[in-house]
Nucleic acid binder design. Structure first.
Length: 252
DNA sequence: CGACTTTGACCGGCGC
DNA sequence: GCGCCGGTCAAAGTCG
C-alpha cells in the first residue's frame, strides 16, 4: 500500500461521494417540484370542479397519451426552451385564452418521422415554472451527439448554467428524457450546505492535518460501505455512468 | 447562405 | 350556420 495508491483511492472515493451528494440534492429538487405539481393539479381539479363548462387541460388523464413536465426556470428568461435531451423545432406560438403567456409548439426532429410534439407554456400561478406537454412516443433513442451527451451527463459533470431545470420523464415514453438538473451551486446554495454530511463539513472547514482528514475519510467510507442503500445507489450510479459513456448505437 | 425563429394567416373542431 | 379557439403552416426575419 503506497501513499500514492492511498491518495488515488481517496480521490476516487471523494468523487463518488460528490456524485452521491449531487444525486441527493437532485432528489430533493425532484421532491420539491413534485409538491408544486401536486398543488397545481389540485388547483386545476378544484377549478374544473367549480366550473365544469370551462375547458381545462387535465394532465395525465387516464388513457391520454399526453404527459406533462414541469420545469423550474428563471422567470426573467422569456425563452420557452426546455432542455430534455431531444432536439425540437419550433413551428408555432400562440397566446391562449386561459393563460396570458404565449404557448410554443415544438416537433421532435431528431429522427425523420418522429411523431412527438410538445407544447410549452408558462404556468399561470407561477411564471417561473414552465409546463411542457408531450404528445406521442419517440421512435428513436436519445441522441448520442455531443448535445445529447451533455444532456445525459448527470453525475459526472455539472450541467446547465443558469436556472435549475427538472424535466420529469413522460410516464408513457419508451425513451424517457434523462432527469437533468443544474447542479452548479450559486452563492446562496453554497451557504445552504447544511445538508452536507457532517464529515464533508468537517473536511471542508476544519484545519485538521492530513492524517486526521485521511482518518475521517476512511471512517466515513467504512460506514458508507456498510450501508446497503449506499451500495445500491453506488451501483446504480456506476451503471448509469457506463450507460452514458457508451450510449446504445441507434439502428441504421 | 443556411439554419433557426417569429408571426400572421389559415384550418378544423366544438359549442351555442 | 356562425363565431371562438387551439393547432398548424409557411413566408419573412434574424443570426452566426
Amino acid at each position: 500500500m503506497s501513499p500514492d495508491y492511498d491518495k488515488e483511492k481517496v480521490e476516487v472515493l471523494e468523487a463518488e461521494l460528490e456524485c452521491l451528494q449531487k444525486e441527493n440534492e437532485a432528489l430533493g429538487l425532484m421532491f420539491e417540484t413534485m409538491s408544486r405539481k401536486y398543488i397545481m393539479l389540485h388547483q386545476a381539479y378544484l377549478r374544473q370542479k367549480s366550473n365544469k363548462r370551462q375547458r381545462l387541460e387535465v394532465p395525465d388523464a387516464a388513457g391520454s397519451k399526453a404527459s406533462q413536465v414541469f420545469v423550474k426556470t428563471d422567470p426573467r428568461d422569456q425563452s420557452l426552451i426546455v432542455k430534455d435531451g431531444f432536439q425540437w423545432i419550433k413551428y408555432g406560438q400562440k397566446v391562449t385564452k386561459d393563460n396570458p403567456s404565449p404557448r410554443a409548439y415544438f416537433k421532435c426532429f431528431m429522427a425523420p418521422g418522429c411523431p412527438v410534439k410538445k407544447k410549452v407554456q408558462r404556468c399561470v400561478e407561477d411564471k417561473s415554472i414552465v409546463v411542457a406537454t408531450y404528445e406521442g412516443q419517440h421512435n428513436h433513442d436519445v441522441d448520442s451527439t455531443a448535445a445529447g451527451k451533455s444532456m445525459l451527463a448527470s453525475c459526472s459533470s455539472a450541467i446547465f448554467s443558469g436556472s435549475r431545470s427538472i424535466p420529469f420523464p413522460p410516464l408513457d415514453n419508451p425513451f424517457p428524457p434523462p432527469i437533468t438538473l443544474d447542479l452548479t451551486l450559486s452563492g446562496s446554495d453554497l451557504q445552504n450546505h447544511r445538508n452536507l454530511p457532517s464529515f464533508m463539513h468537517d473536511y471542508s472547514t476544519s484545519n485538521d492535518d492530513g492524517n486526521n482528514k485521511k482518518k475521517k475519510i476512511e471512517d466515513y467510507v467504512a460506514s458508507l460501505t456498510k450501508d446497503p442503500n449506499f451500495t445500491l445507489a453506488l451501483a446504480a450510479a456506476v451503471a448509469r455512468s457506463i450507460k452514458t459513456e457508451h450510449p446504445k448505437p441507434s439502428p441504421p
